[in-house]
Amino acid sequence: MTEHKPPNLPDDEVSTPDSVSRRGFVKQVGGISATSMLGTAALMTNTDEAEANSEWAEWFQGSYRLMSDEEKDEACARLERRYSEEYDKKVSVDSTPAQEGVLFGYALNIQKCIGCRRCAKACVKENNQSRGDQEIEWIRVLKMEKGDFDASKMADGYPDSYGIQVGGNAYSASGVVLEGEHYYEPEKVPEEDAFYMPMQCMQCEKPPCVKVCPVRTTYREPDGVVVVDYNWCIGCRMCIGACPYWARRFNWGEPKLPKGEMNPDTHYYGNRPRMKGVVEKCTFCMQRTRKGRYPACVEVCPVGARKFGNLLDPDSEIRRVLATKKVFRLKAELNTYPKFFYYMD
């Protein structure tokens, strides 16, 4: 239930026995350090290193959700200073909260998708993921086969060779096996006899990842987006194991983000540069959507298969899709209530 509480939780939340050890400690240390920080800051100022300065304070930063508005602004300003120095450009870290009366929803036309992967690449251009040999993509596009029912395979069933059996065996697949392929690389898409299944964070209403997080650093925001407070994440990767949609990614090493490719328009919960050892995932492009823009993946889809909008607005595109198309949710039987819908014409 905690995920439905407003950002500023009452104090009794902090004083539960479970959380005293960590939060209490950090709070106390934070109190003590307020004075010591002044000294440190003064020393650091002489070295003229904004990065060193802000990193000290960042280490003692509390859980973002429990911060007052002033503390949030401070935290964002601190990050802005650090990122601006690191990436040699003016970086903004936005803290825009969820808008009233907005619940974000997403719909994807699985019939239209051609598997071109522009969404996955647009996501990387927008969201400052790690590049190169530590490349991270939040969207995966699976190529699914339409199946291979062939008279010559009548004897290939498993365990007995009576007719074509779905799945076949390890040496000879038959029927509709639906084993997704990530690494397909044909000259042109869509390929004959294939369809494509893009997957990303479903922004569940009852997110299993939120339930398992031991430090409550991932939670559902009032506009329905499940976010990660990267600074509070301990990198235990419980959420990755809990997510039935393979939506979360882990920074195994120091993220590699070239200065030239860094997108300076960021949000605290969204695309600000991550550090080694934290989990990240799709946020419906929070830095864009909270300011009114479509997510980056919606805008680049060449076939218009991606629809996004406010589920509470009956005139929105997403509501019209839900009202008029054939819609399903992935793994609905898990009762995660995704707000990411698949549909067909």
């Binding site: 051609i114 598997g115 071109c116 992967r117 522009r118 996955a120 690449k121 040999d133 490349e135 993509e137 995966r140 291979d148 076949g168 390890a170 040496y171 000879s172 697949a173 096996v177 084993e179 997704g180 392929e181 990530h182 690494y183 397909y184 690389e185 044909p186 000259e187 042109k188 898409v189 869509p190 060449p302």
Partner: peptide, 24 residues
């Protein structure tokens, strides 16, 4: 039909994607 964007990088330690292609 159009040319797709490149595939994601392979998991560490793999130099091809044969593991996800099934026999035949």
């Amino acid at each position: 039909q159009l040319a797709p964007e490149p595939a994601p990088i392979l998991p560490k330690g793999l130099d091809n994607a044969d593991h996800e292609k099934h026999g035949g």
